[in-house]
Design a protein around this nucleic acid. Sequence first.
DNA 1: TCTGGGGTCCTAGGACCC
DNA 2: TCTGGGGTCCTAGGACCC
Length: 416
Amino acid sequence: MSDSLPKTVFHVDMDAFFVSVEELFDPSLKGKAVVVGGQRNERGVVSAASYEARKFGVHSALPLRTAARLCPHAIFVDGHPERYREYSQKVYAVLGRFSPKVEMASIDEAYLDMTGTERLHGPPLRAAHALHAAIQRETQLNCSIGIATSRLVAKVSSDQAKPNGVLWVLPGQEARFLAPLEVRKIPGVGKVLEKSLHDLGIYKVGDLAALEESFLDERFGEWGLALAGKARGLDAGGWFDSEIGAAGQSKSISHEHTFNQDTADAEQLESTLARLSEMVCRRLREHGLHARTVQLKLRYKDFSTITRARSLPRATQVDGEILEQVRALFRANWKPGAQVRLLGVHASSFEAAEGQLGLLDGRKHQRWQQALSAADRLRDKYGEDAVSLATGLKGGFRERTHENPAGLPGKGPKNG
DNA sequence: TCTGGGGTCCTAGGACCC
DNA sequence: TCTGGGGTCCTAGGACCC
């Protein structure tokens, strides 16, 4: 980057976000061991755990059944995505008053470029405390705030500030702040990279920073160089290097479903594909997008997973066209009888719209889209099952599984 | 212990083109 | 004749994040 004045970056991270939101809706959960993500006997993993539950070793991504074993007295709660979106938006509204350059990095964390806001909000610590108080007051939720000269260090410092804290890493102190931390604390260093680093005797970020760049380059290529920069606190390469608030259009839309029980029932599998295709297309239309590449994901009983993709000659957002591709991929790759655990439908390679359609073809296409958008509005009003469109494609299109589609809370029967 | 769902980014090989 | 080199697109898989 340039050698202009150092930036001031805030990273705001909500504390135990899903759990905290659930507590607002059910105050009796407060202070208890709470696990959000599903019931104790369900397939699936923990989305969030209260600090009380964490004392027993429960953490996000842990299988629910394991969590139930580690913490038998925990209260298990289904997730409510719409509640989390609502509170995420409340947080976003507060953030916007502190800086015009805000970027939500996920549903519960955001970056703010606070460079040059001193006259308005005072020095960084004062601004951070004001922000912290405003979020508390307006959402009744706690957060932690990291302040630094880069996104990377701000993120690491908000993590060190948890829970409910503010931590400022002074300009020039980045490397010293990072040095004693485990390499795993660097965003982008996961299980696998951590292991390779450990195998080389590298445990702390300081060990990493002390290495020759040429060594990291040889060992890990481009990634190694970026890693060297990160160890020194720089937003070296990739996403971290982009300007805050400049995030572009999303690049893919997907839906997937894990069956409560593995199945080899062709009808059930194909009706699930139809439902997933509809969900994907619906979101394409909501965002005004047309996808050229369609991908099927197939996970078997033994957890082995394949993906098969196909690119279309022209982009589409029509259910039937996507489903046709997905179904062809499915029929070409699924061996009848093989037990399936998960199915997924993924759309990517977005284009603004169709280009050079023949007039007639284009008209027909357009009418389809109008019909589908109208159907979407009806579904919004009267519920998911209110509308179905004939597609001309045969085979259990409107069949439904008896399971609750993930991400559609409150629909369908739940165990327990 | 038995492993969700929604994303992003990277790598690597083959096709194809110049 | 005895094997170029770069660019781009496509597909498959996997690491990683929340």
